[in-house]
Simulated scan of single mutants.
Amino acid sequence: MTIGSSDYRVYRYESKLNVVENAALLLCYGEGFDPKQMRAFLSTDVSLSNEEILSFYSKRWAIETYFRTAKVRLAMDQKKYDIIEYIYNQTQGGATLNQIKTQLKVA
Score class of each variant (00 low, 15 high):
5 S>Y: 14
96 T>Y: 06
85 E>C: 04
92 Q>K: 15
27 L>A: 01
87 I>E: 00
32 G>D: 12
78 Q>H: 14
86 Y>M: 09
87 I>M: 04
19 V>P: 00
82 D>Y: 15
46 V>W: 01
81 Y>G: 10
84 I>P: 00
104 L>I: 06
41 F>M: 00
4 G>C: 05
50 N>I: 03
1 M>Q: 04
83 I>N: 08
13 Y>N: 08
33 F>N: 15
78 Q>L: 15
62 A>L: 11
106 V>E: 03
16 K>Q: 14
95 A>N: 01
13 Y>F: 11
98 N>T: 11
34 D>F: 07
74 L>R: 10
15 S>P: 03
57 Y>V: 01
105 K>M: 01
10 V>S: 02
8 Y>T: 04
87 I>A: 01
54 L>W: 01
30 G>P: 02
29 Y>V: 02
89 N>E: 06
62 A>D: 14
45 D>C: 03
87 I>Y: 00
39 R>S: 06
30 G>L: 06
100 I>N: 06
81 Y>L: 05
30 G>V: 02
92 Q>F: 09
40 A>I: 15
85 E>G: 08
32 G>F: 13
42 L>M: 13
39 R>V: 04
22 N>V: 01
13 Y>A: 10
64 E>I: 09
25 L>D: 04
51 E>T: 14
78 Q>W: 08
26 L>P: 00
2 T>P: 04
1 M>K: 11
12 R>M: 07
69 T>W: 14
49 S>T: 05
89 N>C: 06
4 G>R: 04
63 I>M: 09
17 L>H: 15
24 A>P: 02
19 V>K: 15
106 V>I: 09
94 G>K: 06
100 I>K: 03
102 T>A: 10
11 Y>W: 09
8 Y>V: 05
55 S>V: 00
104 L>H: 11
82 D>W: 09
19 V>T: 12
15 S>I: 02
85 E>A: 14
101 K>C: 07
85 E>S: 10
98 N>P: 03
73 R>V: 12
5 S>Q: 15
22 N>T: 06
1 M>A: 11
99 Q>W: 05
105 K>P: 00
34 D>T: 15
63 I>E: 08
105 K>C: 07
23 A>H: 04
2 T>N: 04
95 A>T: 12
18 N>P: 04
87 I>P: 02
77 D>N: 15
35 P>C: 03
53 I>W: 00
19 V>H: 13
22 N>F: 03
35 P>D: 04
6 S>L: 14
41 F>W: 02
86 Y>S: 09
81 Y>I: 12
49 S>A: 03
45 D>H: 02
78 Q>N: 12
83 I>H: 06
107 A>G: 13
1 M>R: 08
16 K>P: 08
36 K>M: 12
42 L>S: 02
77 D>Y: 06
37 Q>M: 11
39 R>C: 05
16 K>N: 08
26 L>K: 01
22 N>C: 05
37 Q>Y: 13
11 Y>D: 02
94 G>R: 10
11 Y>G: 07
82 D>Q: 15
40 A>Q: 09
36 K>G: 15
62 A>F: 10
101 K>E: 05
67 F>N: 10
34 D>L: 14
19 V>Q: 11
76 M>G: 09
4 G>M: 07
4 G>D: 09
74 L>K: 13
25 L>E: 00
56 F>A: 00
39 R>D: 03
20 V>S: 13
8 Y>K: 07
100 I>V: 06
3 I>M: 13
6 S>Q: 09
44 T>W: 00
15 S>N: 14
58 S>L: 05
86 Y>P: 04
